[in-house]
Protein backbone atom coordinates (compact mmCIF):
# COMPACT_ATOMS: atom_id res chain seq x y z
CA UNK A 1 0.00 0.00 0.00
CA UNK A 2 1.33 3.44 -0.90
CA UNK A 3 1.77 5.62 2.15
CA UNK A 4 0.42 9.13 1.57
CA UNK A 5 1.92 10.33 4.86
CA UNK A 6 5.26 10.82 3.14
CA UNK A 7 4.74 13.47 0.44
CA UNK A 8 8.37 13.18 -0.69
CA UNK A 9 7.92 9.51 -1.52
CA UNK A 10 4.64 10.18 -3.34
CA UNK A 11 6.31 13.00 -5.26
CA UNK A 12 9.22 10.77 -6.27
CA UNK A 13 6.84 8.07 -7.47
CA UNK A 14 4.72 10.50 -9.47
CA UNK A 15 7.79 12.10 -10.96
CA UNK A 16 9.35 8.79 -11.91
CA UNK A 17 6.11 7.78 -13.60
CA UNK A 18 6.44 10.59 -16.14
CA UNK A 19 10.21 11.05 -16.15
CA UNK A 20 10.28 10.21 -19.85
CA UNK A 21 7.96 13.10 -20.66
CA UNK A 22 10.09 16.12 -21.48
CA UNK A 23 9.74 19.41 -23.30
CA UNK A 24 11.23 18.88 -26.73
CA UNK A 25 13.00 21.37 -28.97
CA UNK A 26 10.22 21.22 -31.55
CA UNK A 27 7.75 22.23 -28.81
CA UNK A 28 9.82 25.31 -28.08
CA UNK A 29 9.87 26.13 -31.79
CA UNK A 30 6.08 25.75 -31.89
CA UNK A 31 5.77 28.14 -28.95
CA UNK A 32 7.84 30.75 -30.77
CA UNK A 33 5.59 30.37 -33.83
CA UNK A 34 2.49 30.70 -31.65
CA UNK A 35 3.92 33.79 -29.98
CA UNK A 36 4.28 35.45 -33.34
CA UNK A 37 0.71 34.52 -34.23
CA UNK A 38 -0.62 35.87 -30.93
CA UNK A 39 1.31 39.10 -31.33
CA UNK A 40 -0.06 39.63 -34.81
CA UNK A 41 -3.62 38.84 -33.65
CA UNK A 42 -3.29 41.19 -30.65
CA UNK A 43 -1.99 43.96 -32.87
CA UNK A 44 -5.08 43.61 -35.05
CA UNK A 45 -7.36 43.65 -32.01
CA UNK A 46 -6.01 46.77 -30.31
CA UNK A 47 -8.17 49.38 -32.10
CA UNK A 48 -11.32 47.30 -31.55
CA UNK A 49 -10.44 46.66 -27.92
CA UNK A 50 -9.78 50.35 -27.30
CA UNK A 51 -13.16 51.32 -28.73
CA UNK A 52 -14.87 48.62 -26.67
CA UNK A 53 -13.11 49.79 -23.50
CA UNK A 54 -14.30 53.35 -24.02
CA UNK A 55 -17.86 52.12 -24.57
CA UNK A 56 -17.76 49.94 -21.45
CA UNK A 57 -16.41 52.82 -19.37
CA UNK A 58 -19.14 55.18 -20.56
CA UNK A 59 -21.90 52.63 -19.97
CA UNK A 60 -20.42 51.62 -16.62
CA UNK A 61 -20.34 55.18 -15.30
CA UNK A 62 -23.88 55.79 -16.53
CA UNK A 63 -25.10 52.60 -14.88
CA UNK A 64 -23.42 53.33 -11.57
CA UNK A 65 -25.04 56.71 -10.99
CA UNK A 66 -28.06 56.45 -8.71
CA UNK A 67 -27.64 52.74 -8.12
CA UNK A 68 -28.54 51.41 -4.64
CA UNK A 69 -25.67 50.10 -2.56
CA UNK A 70 -25.15 46.34 -2.69
CA UNK A 71 -23.23 43.94 -0.53
CA UNK A 72 -20.34 44.09 -2.99
CA UNK A 73 -19.74 47.73 -2.23
CA UNK A 74 -18.67 49.22 1.02
CA UNK A 75 -17.94 52.32 3.03
CA UNK A 76 -14.55 53.94 2.79
CA UNK A 77 -13.14 57.11 4.22
CA UNK A 78 -12.23 59.85 1.81
CA UNK A 79 -9.46 62.34 2.22
CA UNK A 80 -10.76 64.93 4.65
CA UNK A 81 -12.79 62.49 6.70
CA UNK A 82 -15.97 62.14 4.66
CA UNK A 83 -17.37 58.75 3.86
CA UNK A 84 -17.91 57.37 0.43
CA UNK A 85 -19.23 54.10 -0.89
CA UNK A 86 -16.72 52.36 -3.10
CA UNK A 87 -16.52 49.19 -5.12
CA UNK A 88 -14.96 46.30 -3.29
CA UNK A 89 -11.19 46.20 -3.68
CA UNK A 90 -9.32 42.96 -3.95
CA UNK A 91 -8.98 41.43 -0.52
CA UNK A 92 -6.76 38.65 0.67
CA UNK A 93 -9.15 37.67 3.44
CA UNK A 94 -10.98 34.98 1.57
CA UNK A 95 -12.58 33.58 4.71
CA UNK A 96 -14.74 36.65 4.84
CA UNK A 97 -15.72 36.43 1.22
CA UNK A 98 -15.79 32.75 0.56
CA UNK A 99 -18.96 31.13 -0.63
CA UNK A 100 -17.25 27.81 -1.11
CA UNK A 101 -19.36 25.07 0.35
CA UNK A 102 -16.50 22.72 1.08
CA UNK A 103 -14.68 24.85 3.59
CA UNK A 104 -12.60 23.19 6.31
CA UNK A 105 -14.56 22.94 9.54
CA UNK A 106 -14.39 21.39 12.96
CA UNK A 107 -17.41 20.59 15.12
CA UNK A 108 -17.41 19.84 18.82
CA UNK A 109 -20.41 19.67 21.14
CA UNK A 110 -22.69 21.64 18.86
CA UNK A 111 -20.10 24.35 18.19
CA UNK A 112 -18.92 24.83 14.63
CA UNK A 113 -15.50 26.28 13.84
CA UNK A 114 -14.40 27.42 10.40
CA UNK A 115 -10.73 27.27 9.42
CA UNK A 116 -9.44 30.73 8.63
CA UNK A 117 -5.72 30.42 8.05
CA UNK A 118 -2.51 28.50 8.76
CA UNK A 119 -0.81 29.91 11.81
CA UNK A 120 2.70 31.23 11.39
CA UNK A 121 3.39 31.44 15.12
CA UNK A 122 2.63 28.13 16.85
CA UNK A 123 3.65 29.64 20.20
CA UNK A 124 0.07 30.80 20.77
CA UNK A 125 -1.08 27.20 21.14
CA UNK A 126 -2.28 26.41 24.63
CA UNK A 127 -3.27 23.09 26.13
CA UNK A 128 -4.40 20.19 24.01
CA UNK A 129 -8.16 19.95 24.49
CA UNK A 130 -8.74 16.77 22.54
CA UNK A 131 -8.21 15.14 19.23
CA UNK A 132 -10.32 14.62 16.17
CA UNK A 133 -12.36 11.50 16.69
CA UNK A 134 -14.03 11.38 13.31
CA UNK A 135 -13.00 12.49 9.85
CA UNK A 136 -15.95 12.74 7.50
CA UNK A 137 -16.73 14.28 4.15
CA UNK A 138 -20.11 15.32 5.48
CA UNK A 139 -19.45 16.81 8.91
CA UNK A 140 -22.77 18.61 9.23
CA UNK A 141 -24.78 15.43 9.60
CA UNK A 142 -23.68 14.19 13.05
CA UNK A 143 -25.66 14.84 16.22
CA UNK A 144 -25.21 18.40 17.43
CA UNK A 145 -24.29 17.62 21.03
CA UNK A 146 -21.81 14.91 20.14
CA UNK A 147 -18.72 14.98 22.28
CA UNK A 148 -16.65 13.96 19.27
CA UNK A 149 -14.35 16.34 17.49
CA UNK A 150 -15.53 15.99 13.90
CA UNK A 151 -13.81 17.48 10.87
CA UNK A 152 -13.69 17.39 7.10
CA UNK A 153 -10.07 18.58 7.05
CA UNK A 154 -8.34 17.34 10.18
CA UNK A 155 -7.70 13.62 10.25
CA UNK A 156 -8.75 11.28 13.02
CA UNK A 157 -6.29 11.32 15.89
CA UNK A 158 -4.84 14.74 15.10
CA UNK A 159 -4.79 17.05 18.15
CA UNK A 160 -6.92 20.11 18.86
CA UNK A 161 -5.50 22.91 21.03
CA UNK A 162 -6.93 25.92 22.77
CA UNK A 163 -5.41 29.32 22.01
CA UNK A 164 -3.41 30.50 24.98
CA UNK A 165 -5.62 32.88 26.96
CA UNK A 166 -8.62 32.64 24.63
CA UNK A 167 -11.95 30.93 25.22
CA UNK A 168 -12.59 27.76 23.22
CA UNK A 169 -15.96 29.32 22.38
CA UNK A 170 -14.05 31.82 20.23
CA UNK A 171 -11.40 29.78 18.43
CA UNK A 172 -9.29 26.65 18.63
CA UNK A 173 -6.24 25.39 16.77
CA UNK A 174 -5.90 22.07 15.00
CA UNK A 175 -3.26 20.39 12.95
CA UNK A 176 -3.85 20.48 9.24
CA UNK A 177 -1.20 18.81 7.20
CA UNK A 178 1.30 19.09 10.05
CA UNK A 179 0.74 22.80 10.56
CA UNK A 180 -1.47 24.53 13.11
CA UNK A 181 -4.52 26.17 11.62
CA UNK A 182 -6.91 28.62 13.26
CA UNK A 183 -10.48 27.40 13.50
CA UNK A 184 -12.78 30.29 14.37
CA UNK A 185 -16.30 29.98 15.70
CA UNK A 186 -18.95 30.37 13.04
CA UNK A 187 -22.71 29.94 12.73
CA UNK A 188 -23.83 27.93 9.73
CA UNK A 189 -25.45 24.69 8.57
CA UNK A 190 -27.68 24.43 11.61
CA UNK A 191 -24.91 25.19 14.08
CA UNK A 192 -25.51 28.55 15.73
CA UNK A 193 -24.62 30.18 19.00
CA UNK A 194 -25.39 27.10 21.08
CA UNK A 195 -26.19 29.23 24.13
CA UNK A 196 -23.26 31.59 23.69
CA UNK A 197 -23.33 35.36 23.20
CA UNK A 198 -21.20 37.60 21.00
CA UNK A 199 -19.03 38.16 24.05
CA UNK A 200 -18.37 34.41 24.17
CA UNK A 201 -17.79 33.79 20.48
CA UNK A 202 -15.61 36.87 20.20
CA UNK A 203 -14.07 36.90 23.66
CA UNK A 204 -11.21 39.26 22.92
CA UNK A 205 -11.79 42.23 25.23
CA UNK A 206 -8.51 43.29 26.81
CA UNK A 207 -6.45 41.36 24.27
CA UNK A 208 -6.82 43.50 21.16
CA UNK A 209 -3.80 44.94 19.40
CA UNK A 210 -5.74 46.38 16.46
CA UNK A 211 -9.01 46.32 14.56
CA UNK A 212 -9.14 46.95 10.82
CA UNK A 213 -12.29 47.54 8.86
CA UNK A 214 -11.49 46.94 5.24
CA UNK A 215 -11.74 50.11 3.22
CA UNK A 216 -12.18 52.33 6.29
CA UNK A 217 -9.14 52.15 8.51
CA UNK A 218 -7.29 50.63 11.44
CA UNK A 219 -7.57 51.36 15.13
CA UNK A 220 -4.93 50.32 17.59
CA UNK A 221 -4.59 49.90 21.33
CA UNK A 222 -7.13 51.77 23.45
CA UNK A 223 -9.10 53.00 20.45
CA UNK A 224 -9.42 49.43 19.21
CA UNK A 225 -10.64 48.28 22.64
CA UNK A 226 -13.06 51.20 22.69
CA UNK A 227 -14.47 50.24 19.31
CA UNK A 228 -14.83 46.64 20.44
CA UNK A 229 -16.74 47.73 23.56
CA UNK A 230 -19.12 49.74 21.37
CA UNK A 231 -19.54 46.74 19.10
CA UNK A 232 -20.41 44.43 21.98
CA UNK A 233 -22.70 47.02 23.55
CA UNK A 234 -24.67 47.74 20.38
CA UNK A 235 -24.92 44.21 19.06
CA UNK A 236 -28.42 42.78 18.85
CA UNK A 237 -28.83 39.27 17.50
CA UNK A 238 -30.66 39.09 14.18
CA UNK A 239 -29.90 35.58 13.06
CA UNK A 240 -27.88 32.78 14.60
CA UNK A 241 -26.60 31.60 11.24
CA UNK A 242 -24.99 33.24 8.23
CA UNK A 243 -22.00 32.83 6.01
CA UNK A 244 -19.56 35.70 6.13
CA UNK A 245 -19.70 38.38 3.48
CA UNK A 246 -19.35 42.13 3.07
CA UNK A 247 -16.22 43.92 4.13
CA UNK A 248 -13.61 42.33 6.36
CA UNK A 249 -13.40 43.28 10.02
CA UNK A 250 -10.10 41.95 11.25
CA UNK A 251 -9.29 41.77 14.93
CA UNK A 252 -5.60 41.20 15.64
CA UNK A 253 -4.81 40.13 19.18
CA UNK A 254 -1.72 41.00 21.16
CA UNK A 255 -0.43 37.46 20.65
CA UNK A 256 -0.64 37.91 16.87
CA UNK A 257 -3.74 35.77 16.32
CA UNK A 258 -6.22 37.23 13.86
CA UNK A 259 -9.99 36.83 14.00
CA UNK A 260 -11.84 37.42 10.77
CA UNK A 261 -15.37 38.78 10.86
CA UNK A 262 -17.24 40.94 8.41
CA UNK A 263 -19.54 43.92 8.24
CA UNK A 264 -22.36 44.24 5.76
CA UNK A 265 -23.82 47.70 6.22
CA UNK A 266 -24.67 47.86 9.94
CA UNK A 267 -24.60 44.10 10.38
CA UNK A 268 -21.73 42.27 11.97
CA UNK A 269 -21.33 38.74 10.64
CA UNK A 270 -19.33 36.31 12.69
CA UNK A 271 -20.97 33.57 14.67
CA UNK A 272 -24.45 34.81 13.83
CA UNK A 273 -25.64 38.07 12.36
CA UNK A 274 -25.74 41.04 14.74
CA UNK A 275 -27.31 44.38 14.16
CA UNK A 276 -24.73 46.95 15.23
CA UNK A 277 -26.32 50.23 14.19
CA UNK A 278 -24.03 53.04 15.23
CA UNK A 279 -20.84 50.99 15.34
CA UNK A 280 -19.72 52.09 11.92
CA UNK A 281 -20.17 55.77 12.87
CA UNK A 282 -18.14 55.25 16.03
CA UNK A 283 -15.42 53.38 14.19
CA UNK A 284 -15.26 56.00 11.48
CA UNK A 285 -15.11 58.82 14.00
CA UNK A 286 -12.30 57.11 15.89
CA UNK A 287 -10.36 56.54 12.69
CA UNK A 288 -10.72 60.12 11.50
CA UNK A 289 -9.92 61.49 14.95
CA UNK A 290 -6.76 59.50 15.36
CA UNK A 291 -5.44 58.78 11.91
CA UNK A 292 -6.89 61.41 9.59
CA UNK A 293 -7.70 60.05 6.18
CA UNK A 294 -6.12 56.64 6.51
CA UNK A 295 -7.66 54.08 4.22
CA UNK A 296 -6.85 50.38 4.07
Amino acid sequence: MINLDTPERVRDMLDAGVAGLNCRQDMRAAIIRKQEKVRRRNAARIPVAAAAAVLVAVLGIAGYVGRPRTVNEFYAIEAGGGVTVTARPVTEHKFVLTAEDDHAILIHRGKLYRMTYILSNPAVAGACVGSVTRYTENPYAPVADSNDYISNAVFKGDPVYEVDGLSVSTAVLAEVDGQLAVFQRSGEHGYGLNGDSLLDTCAVVGQIASISLEGVGTLEGEQAEQAMSVLIEKARLENAEALPGGQALLITLKNGLRLELSMSGDQLIGCGVWDCTGFLDTFRALVTAHTGDQTV
Binding site: K94, F95, T98, H103, A104, I105, M115, N152, A153
Partner: peptide
Amino acid sequence: SEGTVASRLA
Protein backbone atom coordinates in the same frame (compact mmCIF):
# COMPACT_ATOMS: atom_id res chain seq x y z
CA SER B 1 -9.42 30.12 0.94
CA GLU B 2 -6.83 28.13 2.86
CA GLY B 3 -9.69 26.36 4.59
CA THR B 4 -11.09 25.14 1.31
CA VAL B 5 -7.67 23.91 0.21
CA ALA B 6 -7.32 22.07 3.52
CA SER B 7 -10.69 20.43 3.15
CA ARG B 8 -10.14 19.46 -0.50
CA LEU B 9 -6.68 18.11 0.27
CA ALA B 10 -8.06 15.94 3.06
